[in-house]
């Protein structure tokens, strides 16, 4: 195994990890701030991918498709929060699980009705359809680099939003003291709606930009969801920092696992999770 090969796997692992971060950061924010477990989060990833595919085949251009799709997913997120999730904040997790499980079934069937059950591919945008040669016969696709770059930018923006802005301050305060925020006259309901919509949009966006790399398949949502659960468990509930660390960890572990020990690659993330549970049950960055 030579250096270029390791480099490629490293880049792949990071890219996968960053993508996982986009999906899991929304999940962990919604957990941390609203105290909601959302099994349907993976469905947003799937919706994003299908939107990208169908809009791209209509417009002929993935970039246009993404630009059109993002507002749709934001609206979807806000609508779901207003109509459904709002009723769950004070409820036992049990009912959150049940309701969002029902929501998955609804999403899956609507997907089947609207887009069918076929597997689709999305073309890499022409502009980014190139490769950087590393050795004589190894090269690295530009599109993957571009995705990593976009994910990094979004992660930075998210960090900035939460740490430096007034909205972020309200979000952080809302996480620690709901009554205090409300007594300051801040509209906590609006914040919840926005945070939820942000989570939906991030997950869907991840599905859109990843569509050219992995095919668009009916059950793509549930796989991503479970991996994101593992990410949140390892990183610690509500910790965006933890989500980042755990996403990269899992991205690298799974990518290298598939190359080095393909037979047990599927198990690696769960073994990682088991180790973290023994060592730090509250997660790497979780509060005790």
């Amino acid at each position: 195994m030579d250096l270029a090969f390791v480099l490629i796997q490293l880049l792949n692992g990071l890219q996968y990890g960053l993508l996982l971060f986009l999906v899991s950061s929304g999940l962990t924010l919604v957990f941390g701030i609203m105290g909601i477990i959302n099994l349907a989060h993976g469905s947003f990833y799937m919706v994003g991918a299908y939107l990208a595919w169908s809009l791209a085949s209509m417009t002929g251009n993935l970039a246009t498709a993404i630009l059109l799709a993002i507002p749709l997913t934001v609206v979807l997120g806000m609508g779901l929060e207003r109509l459904l999730f709002r009723h769950l904040y004070s409820r036992d997790h049990l009912y959150q699980v049940l309701l969002t499980y029902g929501l998955i079934l609804v999403f899956e069937e609507l997907r089947s009705l609207i887009w069918g059950d076929d597997v689709h591919g999305v073309a890499v945008p022409a502009l980014l359809n190139a490769s950087i040669p590393l050795t004589e016969n190894l090269s690295y696709p530009v599109y993957r680099l571009a995705i990593s770059g976009v994910c990094l930018l979004l992660a930075l923006a998210l960090y900035f939003l939460i740490q430096k802005t007034r909205l972020g301050m309200m979000i952080r305060a809302g996480a620690s003291n709901r009554d205090m925020v409300q007594s300051l006259g801040i509209d906590i309901k609006l914040i919840y709606t926005l945070v939820f919509a942000l989570g939906v949009a991030l997950a869907a966006f991840a599905g859109m930009i990843n569509a050219p790399l992995s095919s668009v398949t009916p059950n793509m949502g549930s796989h991503v969801l479970i991996i994101c659960f593992v990410v949140v468990v390892i990183g610690g509930i509500g910790s965006v920092k933890g989500a980042m660390a755990a996403s990269l960890m899992i991205g690298l572990a799974e990518t290298f696992g598939q190359v080095l020990v393909p037979e047990v690659a599927g198990m690696i993330v769960y073994v990682l999770m088991a180790i973290v549970l023994v060592w730090r049950p509250e997660g790497l960055f979780g509060r005790k």
Partner: peptide, 10 residues
């Protein structure tokens, strides 16, 4: 079934 499950939860 999904809608029914959601109704039961609510």
């Amino acid at each position: 079934m999904g809608i029914l499950i959601m109704l039961v939860a609510l």
